[in-house]
Structure formats: C-alpha cells, structure tokens
Simulated assay, not measured.
Amino acid sequence: MRLPLFPRAHVPAPLLAAMLALAVLPLAADGAGAQSTPLPFAGPSNPAQAAPGFVLPPPLAPSGRTAAAPPGATPGAREPHAVLPQAPAGKITLGVFAKFGADGAPVPRALTWRVFADTPEASGAFPLVAESTDAAPVFFLNPGGYIVHVTYGFASQAQRVVLGATSRREVVVLPAGGLRLQADVDNKAITNQKVSFDIFEGSFLQGRTSTQPYYRGALANEVIQLPEGTYHVVSTYGDANAVVRADVSVQAGKLTDATVHHRAAQIMLKLVKEPGGEAQADTQWSVITPGGDTIKESIGAFPTFVLTEGDYVAIARNDGKVVSRDFKVEAGKDREVEVVRK
C-alpha cells in the first residue's frame, strides 16, 4: 500500500498512527516478458543537504573522539553508521538508513526522510522535527519517542524509534524496486508522444486490480520507483482503441524492464472527388467497426487515428452527402485511406 508524501507541515494523528501499522506486501504474479536487473538508482548524484531546522554532524566530536559503535553495528562493515559521531550536550545521535529488503543492499540516494515527534500536539497533529534528503542522515535529537518516515519514489515506510541515553542506529527495510516500460509495434519502438502507460496495483489475470491508477501517464523509458509487488500496466498507443494490458512484477532492489507489444497502425483518412485528388476540408468523420460500434470521430481534411489491427468502416459527411469505405488495418503498416466522394 502506498503511503502519502507530506509537505513540511504537521500530519494528522490518526493518519500517522495508521502509517505505523502498514507494511508493503509483495504480490504473487509475474509479468510476462519482463526482465529484472540491479536497480540503477534515480535521483541526483549529490543529494541536497539537510533542510533548515537541524544541523548535520561533523565527522568528529568537539573533543576529537568519535562515539562508540551503536548496537547492531559492525566496525568496518559496508553499511552506513558503523560509528556514529558524538552528539552535542543534551542531544542523542540517531543514524538512519534504508535497505532493499531485510537482506538487501543499502539505498544510496533518492530518499526523503522525515522525523516526527510521536506525541501529537493539542491540534492532534504530529509535529515534524527534522528532515533530510541524504541517503543516510544523522540527526541530533532530544531523548524521547519519534516516528521515522522515509519515501523512495512511490514506496514509503514508517517506524517508531525511542531514544534513550545512548546513540542509536536505525535500519528501515524498504521493499521497493524500479519499473521501466517501453512499447513497440512490429519491433519498432513507439515514441513518447504517441504512447503512455497507466499503472494499477494488483493482477488483472487474477482479478485483483485496483480501480484507480497507482500512477497515471508514465512515459516510455521512465524509471518509476514502486513498492515490491505485482502491477497491471495499461499501454495506450494514440487516442483511439490501440490499448494493450499486461501484468508485471517489481522486485526489491531490481529494475524491471517490460516491453508492451502493440498490434496497430496509424491511418490517415482523406475524402477526395477522385482517386489521388485533393482532400476535402470541413469533413466530418466517423470510424466504426463492421458491427456498428463507433471507435473515433473527427472533423478535418486529414484526420489521423491509431487503430488496432482489424476491419473498419470510414464514414465521411461533407456538403450534405455521406459516403463510406471499408478498410483493413494491419499491424505496423501505417497508410493513407482515401474515401472517394461520388
């Protein structure tokens, strides 16, 4: 389940409390034709420094000594915060980082961290006390309870932390991966201007698809960071009936590449007085199936539609006259269809 992103503001108490009870649950289906590779991390190569309101720690404490290794840390380990810096007087050091799954690698960038006090104010909101876009930030906080919330694209996780008298190293398990979609027709890639993708949670094949898109209007080759699980992708080529559906699986720490294969073509219609003649302006067009279902309507001399392969009828209305022509669409064969006005 997706958790919402919050601006630098308070969060309603019931919502933040519910966040602590949520976990990202992997689904079971696998997307046909998809390939998974190690995830190339999106986001800036040098993440922005922490926002105003707190200070990132220096590498050494004022005394020249570093703090002892926090519980669970292994000196020399490749994970962040094997040794935490000394906190200023009256503060406790909290070092946080995220991992792709319990046994996954640390997430190196593209994270947003927010730390909330775990006690709501009189208004019922949990106050935001610190935030950072570092991959593994360190916070100097007062002793007490906090809610640590991290987002990675559309994936997010929240957990409660209680700070006592000693430094603490907190690992947030973030089961998330990336999805990169493409579409082609007759083995030729479709440009971004002509294709888009809507992503739904769940599996269409198993009848467990959400009714509202999780992400609408994704572009080809865009890397979308999502919670681990199964998603249903709806690829729309053009704006008529060239629509293809497929299930894909996103794995933690992996980039899933999926290509949707359309069987469609681009058709341009012309109303002419004779074959090869000049197109007639102000023509009203309807494209219907042989059974009479309307696929697309337009007005103009050169309407262009992307239609899935099959049989169609083009109906042209101009100057009080109506003419029609049957035509066939073959996948990948863009062409011009003339309707001769008799």
Rank of each mutant, 00 (worst) to 15 (best):
V244D: 09
T256P: 07
Q251G: 11
Y215E: 08
T209V: 15
V248E: 04
D239W: 06
L255W: 07
I224L: 14
Y231I: 02
L226Q: 00
H232D: 08
V243S: 06
A252W: 04
G229H: 01
V234T: 10
A220Y: 04
L219H: 12
T256M: 07
S249P: 07
D239L: 11
D247Q: 10
T211P: 06
V234C: 04
G238T: 00
T236I: 11
A240L: 07
V234Q: 10
V234G: 05
N241Q: 11
E222T: 09
R245N: 13
V243L: 05
D247S: 10
T209C: 10
A220G: 11
L255H: 11
V223R: 13
V223C: 06
L255Q: 14
S235E: 03
G229N: 03
V223T: 14
S235K: 03
T211M: 11
T230E: 05
V250F: 00
D247R: 13
Y215K: 13
E222C: 02
G217A: 02
P227E: 00
Q212C: 06
Y231C: 01
A246K: 15
V223M: 10
N241W: 09
Q225K: 06
L255D: 08
N221F: 11
E228L: 03
V250L: 01
V250Q: 00
T236V: 13
A240F: 03
L219S: 14
G253N: 03
Y237M: 00
T230M: 07
V244H: 08
T256H: 07
A252R: 06
D239F: 09
N221S: 14
V243T: 12
A220V: 12
A220C: 02
A252S: 15
G217S: 03
T256E: 05
Q251L: 12
P227W: 00
E222N: 06
D239T: 13
S235G: 02
D247K: 12
T230H: 08
A242Q: 03
K254Y: 10
E222G: 06
Y214C: 09
T256K: 07
T230K: 07
Y214Q: 11
H232G: 09
S235N: 01
A220N: 06
I224Q: 05
G253E: 02
V243M: 06
Q251I: 08
V244N: 08
R245W: 09
L219M: 10
D239H: 11
